[in-house]
């Protein structure tokens, strides 16, 4: 029993990131509201950031900034210092910027969709699109033909 607890404790960062990622994933696939989908995507991205940053951590390590004003002069001192892994930090800095950009464009598209259709619910938008464009999908086309036939 304590063995299992040790294993889980040693890897608890993975449990946290999986939990967060699945919350975001559920929001993305189950929610009909477009804003909630974007929130889900952001939680998903945050989970990945957390995963990478936790991979970079070293127990007892300091931030990847060289110790001393001019690190070369303190070379013998700097050799004792453990730095955390700088490579994932750099990758995630890139990823955060891309996440901000995609979120901004997605929210702008949602504002345009709201102005066009008066709703941000997926069902309402799809129904409105079927009325505007009968050729929107095969199923919708057949439905549209049936409605015209009824009239």
């Amino acid at each position: 029993m304590s063995g299992i607890i040790d294993v889980v404790y040693a890897e608890y960062n993975y449990w946290i990131y999986v939990t967060l990622m699945m919350i975001g994933f559920y929001a993305m696939i189950a929610k009909k509201n477009l804003i909630k989908k974007i929130i889900g995507a952001n939680i998903f991205q945050t989970a990945i950031f957390l995963f990478y940053i936790s991979l970079a951590d070293i127990t007892g390590g300091t931030a990847p900034i060289l110790v001393g004003e001019h690190g070369a002069e303190h070379a013998e001192h700097a050799a004792d210092v453990i730095y955390t892994n700088p490579v994932p930090h750099c990758l995630i800095l890139t990823a955060i910027v891309v996440a901000v950009s995609t979120t901004a464009v997605a929210l702008a598209l949602i504002i345009r969709i709201y102005n066009e259709y008066g709703s941000i619910e997926e069902d309402v938008i799809l129904a409105a699109r079927r009325e505007l464009q009968p050729e929107f999908s095969e199923h919708a086309r057949q439905k549209g033909v049936a409605e015209v036939g009824e009239q």
Binding site: A10, E11, M22, D57, I58, T59
Partner: peptide, 17 residues
């Protein structure tokens, strides 16, 4: 989620130098 947790067991432990 279960698949990701399963895959996570092969990854290094938190803070492992």
């Amino acid at each position: 989620g279960a698949m990701l947790i399963y895959a996570g067991h092969d990854l290094p432990a938190f803070g492992d130098i």
